[in-house]
Design a protein around this nucleic acid. Structure first.
Lengths: 251, 251
DNA sequence: CCAAAAGTGTTGGAGGTACACCCATGA
DNA sequence: TCATGGGTGTACCTCCAACACTTTTGG
């Protein structure tokens, strides 16, 4: 039915950032990348902003460009596991939330045929500080999500899509706690929403909304400091099950 | 900068779903499958039900089981194109709506390592009738989505997820027109919603909701027949752009 | 006491549900 | 004429945005 054909294809060096032997030439390879979001308080301004880690490519194509952390899919691991693994290898992070974003497979997105299964993840602010201890400090850096440079491949587009998903999902799920420590004040939670949605929220209405949603458990502790002490809350982990669809796995 | 090399792509004659020689053992291959929804009016009952086409497998694994239509990803086509192609090859259908669903890649979902990029699609009721003219009538059949047999691989799970997405998406987008002809009455549109959501909707409130959404354009024609003639509507195609995220392609 | 953030109350509008009610046709 | 679905009006309820107001701390 289909006969064997010869194809001439301009091919550059292998794609893998990091190690890996040269791959076979005639197959489409599967890569896994992750858009990792965290929050950082800018020293100058007093508001939080979304940041994400990028790795500098050390080889062609797009050598010296910044790219999403990722790697090749191993034959013996699931997609979710590959996302966690490559994420840990390149940045040393363990995400508090991880979800598949999309599979990108345009033929010209890389010189060789690569299908990228892209995940997106959230890491807590405190965790992202301790990350990348020995992981080439040089080649991993955090960027403000709003002002990214030109990235390798179609990664700018991918980040845009991940941002869109994050902004959507924060509206109808309670994933914001993936960016916060175990306990937090309502003001801190509101700041997270404001950073993601890029607009101010009414503190009074925000309080009632999250209180009525039943996803927060008040503790008896308070955050003291500047003014009137604010109650600390924890997330109710029993809720979030029903929010997701019938996809068993991914944690 | 980029050096040109020659690559020999042994296209193991294969790929399309039925045929196929044994694949290489050490690579993970990429398949593309599609969950295709359409509507069928059951002869006995008077209400619409969701149906989808399945193909009977002719070889192991899961020989003689029913499976989602699909095939191997070709090296020279995008994921979207592969979904359209395999969908046409196996069922002869051209979908009125096509969207990527999810990438499934558990290691044990197939004896050999296969990552399936799954799409879901809608085809209009009338189109689904004329389908599969010469496409092995024997090995393609339509099933009620609610009462599927045990399918090959993890395809039952996949259909469940596709149904979940469809039911969600019908609530906040206007994809239902993908199951209807060019013009239709509000009652017909409501029936589509009822079939997808599996519950009755108030005709009066349904009318106002879709009218206020601005997605319908009334024509000056009417569907006559049983009782008082019902006005025919068309969909306003200018709207649906803003509904989707920043994913350029897939039409 | 004052500033500022924590937390509460109140109002009005938007949108959804339930349901009563007219309208127009085939039989 | 009647039965049936097409189409309209309306009351009510819930949720949300706006904003006035009280409470509690640090300085």
């Amino acid at each position: 039915m289909l006969s064997e054909v010869r194809v001439t294809m301009t091919r550059t060096e292998a794609v893998s950032r990091g190690a890996g032997s040269a791959p076979a030439d005639d197959v489409t390879r599967v890569a896994v990348s992750t858009v990792i979001f965290s929050l950082r308080r800018e020293p100058g301004s007093d508001c939080l902003s979304l940041v994400l880690p990028l790795v500098r490519r050390t080889r062609d194509p797009f050598a010296s460009r910044w790219a999403l952390p990722g790697g090749w899919l191993d034959t013996t691991e699931s997609l979710d596991a590959a996302a966690s693994r490559t994420l840990a290898e390149t940045t040393g992070l363990a995400p508090s939330y991880l979800e598949q974003l999309y599979a990108f497979g345009a033929v010209d997105r890389s010189p060789t045929r690569v299908v990228s299964i892209v995940y997106w993840a959230l890491v807590r602010e405190d965790e992202s500080r301790t990350a990348a201890p020995e992981h080439d400090e040089e080649n991993v850096a955090w960027f403000d999500a709003a002002t990214l440079p030109e990235l390798a491949f179609d990664h700018n587009q991918i980040v845009d899509y991940a941002l869109w998903r994050l902004r959507n999902k924060v509206g109808y799920t309670r994933i914001a706690h993936g960016l916060l420590p175990e306990t937090f004040t309502l003001a801190e939670l509101r700041e997270v929403y404001e950073a993601i949605l890029r607009r101010k929220l009414d503190p009074a209405n925000f309080r009632r909304q999250v209180e009525n949603s039943g996803t927060l458990i008040p503790t008896d502790r308070f955050r003291t400091g500047s003014h009137r002490p604010a109650r600390l809350y924890r997330y109710n982990r029993d809720i979030e099950v029903a929010e997701r669809g019938p996809l068993d796995a991914h944690h």
